[in-house]
Design a protein around this nucleic acid. Structure first.
Lengths: 254, 254
DNA sequence: GCGCCTATACCCAGAAATGGGGATGCTTTG
DNA sequence: CAAAGCATCCCCATTTCTGGGTATAGGCGC
């Protein structure tokens, strides 16, 4: 496969980028070599806009100023589609992932007028920590080099992993010392049970459950049950999958 | 690169698997060809344990029965690490992602006694929809074929994408299940603020905050504030770092 | 044995959440 | 344009949480 060595070389460069500038250079080169005209790498660690996000791109100035200036990203259908795909996808296929509203189509039209044609986006998500995407774009007149999508998928993933390293992960916090019983009470609380229900499940009195939860809150020095389970979740005392099945999927308004 | 054609061929087989049995066969073959002894593919679409999850593996019977029978997966450190990594990772490196408790190490020891040595796990997450992982494992005496990790990463991702297709996607739900104001209220709630405090922060009445939170709970069809913020967290409406600074590191009892 | 921690249980009082009802402007969307 | 959704405010009653005090029994290590 003729592209393999190229991909390998570009991946090395991307993952070796020590700073944003080098990442820019490496991705610019990667996009060009693959036959794309632009790239955009966005990594968003939630909550901390200053140090928690990274946006590197070589979009045309016109589009960049429109897209970022007007904060169109909030309604970006590509971003929404990225939340529904495990793998990279071509923009012309987004309607396979999400329905496009009139506003969405309009946004894509405006993009086209600003030099942004079709594209290929590699999404990655870390539940509770961050979302990111790496996009390669061609001009409106050009077409996506479909024989390079495999490479684009790999390079996008590499770039996102590097972005996460540059941005930094969330600081680690040591596990709290909760006893077994306390953890059980926290877990059932996280599953939406009231103290009374938990008492029934564990076969102890409501008062005791209340007491366990109070001690757990004290341990974490928080004053609300919400924060308590977030602490426990972040500590790894409980995991998302411990609670997946306890809130029902339910039908939401179409 | 000598592995390239192999990877390509195996990827074709995996992504072409029409049913679970074929996926099993394709992944068995892939694991073997790469120099691994076992594989395990887990895909968990939220909320529907019966049709929403897929578990395919060729682990030794002893370990499979222990691991699944005793539901050790709930405490699996590999699973937790997978929630903290954008890319595939080797098991011997998990302590770079999460701290290992004594129980965690014990679990890994037990695994080792049951024929499960080191491994390489490819995690993928879709916030609000599912989490999955594809793992390749070597025997305790063997060692992970590090020159094949690139292939493993690709094949794991392909397998997970196929698993998602087999399991089916969740019916599309637009991201803004919650309006901006509702999200704000949820966020401050997650930060441990009461409705009254949130009202002060947002400059609206307490009643309105209460109403927003009620609507949010209704949207997710849950009955507690705890579950509400977990839903929001899982949906990606809020992130850990949104709340990280709102619960104090606090000194815990030594 | 003694101290420390844990699990268990109970009481109280105030604060907060939860689940209903209704109403008004305003923007967005089809 | 008309319908839908959003943000805002108000009322109500009930349940649950939260924080404080107190106590007994058992396990564990020193």
């Amino acid at each position: 496969m003729k592209h393999f060595y190229l991909t390998e070389e570009l991946a090395q460069e991307i993952s070796g980028a020590a700073q944003e500038e080098q990442l820019f250079a490496a991705l610019s080169k990667a996009a060009e070599r693959m036959g794309f005209d632009h790239f955009a790498l966005a990594y968003d660690r939630r909550g901390d806009a200053e140090t928690g996000s990274l946006l590197v791109h070589n979009y045309p100035d016109a589009w960049a100023s429109v897209f970022i200036g007007f904060d169109l990203s909030a309604n970006d259908p590509i971003r929404r589609a990225g939340e529904r795909s495990l793998t990279g996808f071509q923009w012309c296929d987004v309607d396979q992932f999400i329905p496009l509203s009139r506003g969405d189509r309009q946004l894509l039209m405006v993009a086209r007028e600003n030099g942004i044609g079709d594209g290929f986006t590699v999404p990655r998500h870390l539940p509770g920590e961050a979302t990111g995407s790496c996009t390669f774009v061609v001009n409106p007149k050009g077409s996506v080099p479909t024989d390079m999508l495999h490479s684009a998928e790999i390079l996008g993933a590499v770039a996102l992993a590097r972005a996460r390293q540059l941005v930094g992960t969330l600081p680690y916090r040591k596990r709290a010392v909760l006893t077994k019983r306390q953890r059980e009470c926290v877990l059932w609380s996280a599953r939406g049970k009231t103290a009374g229900e938990t008492a029934g499940i564990l076969g102890i009195s409501t008062e005791t459950v209340v007491r366990h939860l109070k001690i757990a809150r004290d341990r974490y020095a928080v004053h609300s049950g919400q924060l308590l389970i977030l602490c426990a979740l972040f500590d790894g005392l409980i995991g998302f999958s411990d609670i997946y099945d306890w809130w029902r999927p339910h039908e939401r308004a179409p």
